[in-house]
Design a protein around this nucleic acid. Structure first.
Length: 506
RNA sequence: GGCCCGUUCGUCUAGGGGUUAGGACAGGAGAUUUUCAUUCUUCAAACAGGGGUUCGAUUCCCCUACGGGCUACCA
């Protein structure tokens, strides 16, 4: 295993939006692959035709693209083990299932779903396994000629694995250590469905083998079916090449209990999907981190820290750092409750840390969507640098920087009017004269002049500072007021002061 | 119910036979910023319980409790 090239896969089923837990699985796969110079493959597990959702596959690929977790092989780019969609590999699985029937490790079962339902009703804790399979209609219980007839007549049937009796099935999980199961307690899972499609159990083993997967990461919810997969690797004769397994801890609801679902997001007011997902049947829109204003760097960062750390106090990691520092033995075993407040903190950190240049396009789009047209890119960059430290979500750039591009539509008059005096009007008229002088000042000089003038007029600087801010911004927020004035420019500042004076004196 | 996995501050976690059990988010207090945010300082806050093993357990073992997952011709 150590001399083989590392190959990992993410194998989602295209049934809807991509959950943040799914993205974390992708991330750990990706980090591990890249750390070891391996390949990351995307395989679409679309074996359930009833749950197939149009557009979901494209959506998944778009999510990976947004996150920057590009697969080396996928349905889109192809690869040496194509096709990467299980529905397109359909004929292949039957062959292996039949081979197992021949070996005696699997059998045909003709029970209808009604019969199964009835049996489950009659027998408490019914399991289709060694205890009951002889009471069912299958090639183990029926005489050979009858089985042949049923088969010949094209009777709908499935192929089930025949779990052995009294065996301990165990394996070494990279996260949990040695895990064992009693084969008597594992049921005869369906391998091939009546429609000829494989179930996950068969498909995952066959494809992991054929695609030469060396390390398999998946959520902890798969642990109970691991013995089926382990056994399959064995009876198919591929035991020596079985990938090393890693069952990742689950991401849990912030409140209450259980694993995080998209319903929790709706209920608690935060996204669960990576990007917006629109169900084209119901029209229901499930919000995503991207649209809510998360940076992909922050999204990945916060996901990585949900169940992993590098052993130091470092919290902020770039993707490259994660690749460098990732290691499976630092993944925690216990599930982690998702904390949206902390998620936002990661985003704020990443916005602060980002260069204006890299934020430019995103901010430009946000402002544009609000009707603000930007003609001067250099100006936009300066604005971003000035306000980015007060933005938690990208959308905050609108509120924090709109006034740099348009005059305030309204003023926070309550903050000004009660204390407004003619002396203040006088002060601002005098300040306009300073601004209109041919001399130019930097922000600090402007502040000095402003304060000197205030003193000269017998006013406290503090008494005119806030009104000045309201004049330029409209409200009680934003960066240092002289930085704003300077960036706006003298003539624009004059226009705003004059306009505001009218409102204040009205 | 059965099986499997897990359990350190409210949350994410570090640590590990002898520590003042560390950090981060959130919360409290304060400083700076004559707005707000940032930043800084500071406070409060945890080893689920019981048995072992040991000179000594939060750390190792067992049991209990609790939590979670699975128990489909879904993944």
């Amino acid at each position: 295993m150590s001399d083989k090239k590392v190959r990992v896969r993410f194998a989602p089923s295209p049934t809807g939006g991509l959950h943040l837990g799914g993205v974390r699985t992708v991330l750990f796969n990706y980090l591990f692959a890249k750390k070891h110079g391996g390949d990351f493959v995307l395989r679409i597990e679309d074996t359930d035709q009833t749950r197939y959702v149009d557009g979901a596959e494209q959506y998944i690929m778009d999510c990976l693209k947004w996150c920057g977790l590009t697969p080396d092989e996928s349905p889109l780019v192809g690869g040496p083990f194509a096709p990467y969609r299980q529905s397109e590999r359909k004929p292949l699985y039957r062959e292996y299932a039949e081979r197992l029937v021949e070996n005696g490790h699997a059998y045909y079962a003709f029970d209808t779903s009604e019969e199964l339902e009835q049996k489950r009703k009659d027998v408490p804790n019914f399991q289709y396994g060694h205890a009951y399979r002889h009471e069912m209609r299958n090639s183990l219980s029926l005489p050979l000629h009858e089985v042949e007839k049923l088969l010949h007549d094209g009777t709908p049937h499935v192929i089930r694995i025949k779990m052995p009796e009294d065996e301990t099935i165990g394996f070494d999980d990279m996260i949990r250590g040695h895990v064992t199961f009693d084969s008597n307690l594992v049921d005869d899972k369906v391998l091939l469905k009546a429609d000829g499609m494989p179930t996950y159990h068969l498909a995952v083993v066959v494809d992991d083998h054929l695609m030469k997967i060396t390390h398999a990461f998946r959520g902890e919810e798969w642990l109970p079916s691991a013995p089926v997969h382990i056994l399959l690797w064995k009876v198919l004769g591929w035991e020596a090449e079985m990938p090393a397994w890693a069952h990742l801890p689950l991401i849990l609801k912030p409140d209450g209990h259980g694993k995080l679902s998209k319903r929790d997001g709706a209920r608690l007011g935060f996204p669960v999907y990576a990007m917006n997902w629109q169900d084209n049947k119901t029209g229901e829109l499930t919000p995503g981190f991207r649209e809510l204003g998360f940076l992909p760097e922050a999204f990945l960062n916060l996901l990585a820290m949900l169940g992993w750390n590098d052993g130091t106090d470092q919290e902020i990691f770039s993707l490259d750092e994660l690749i460098e520092k990732f290691s499976i033995d630092r993944i925690s075993k216990a599930g982690a409750k998702f904390d949206f407040e902390k998620a936002k903190w990661y985003n704020a950190e990443w916005i602060k840390k980002s260069e204006a240049e890299s934020l430019k396009l995103k901010v430009w789009e946000i402002l544009k969507s609000k009707g603000i047209v930007i003609k001067d890119e250099a100006y936009l960059l300066k604005v971003i640098d000035l306000v980015k430290e007060r933005c938690v979500l990208l959308e905050d750039f609108y509120q924090q920087s709109a006034y740099f591009f348009q005059q305030p539509a309204e003023y926070d008059l309550n903050a000004v009017k009660p204390k407004w005096t003619d002396a203040k009007t006088d002060f601002f008229n005098a300040f306009i004269s300073i601004l209109s002088s041919p001399e130019t000042f930097d922000a600090a000089e402007l502040e000095t002049r402003f304060k000197a003038l205030a003193e000269e007029k017998g006013l406290k600087a503090g008494d005119v500072m806030l009104p000045f801010r309201i004049m330029l911004v409209g409200g009680k927020f934003g960066p240092h007021v002289f930085d704003i004035a300077k960036l706006l420019g003298e003539s624009e500042a004059i226009i705003r002061i004059e306009k505001a004076l009218e409102a204040f004196n009205a």
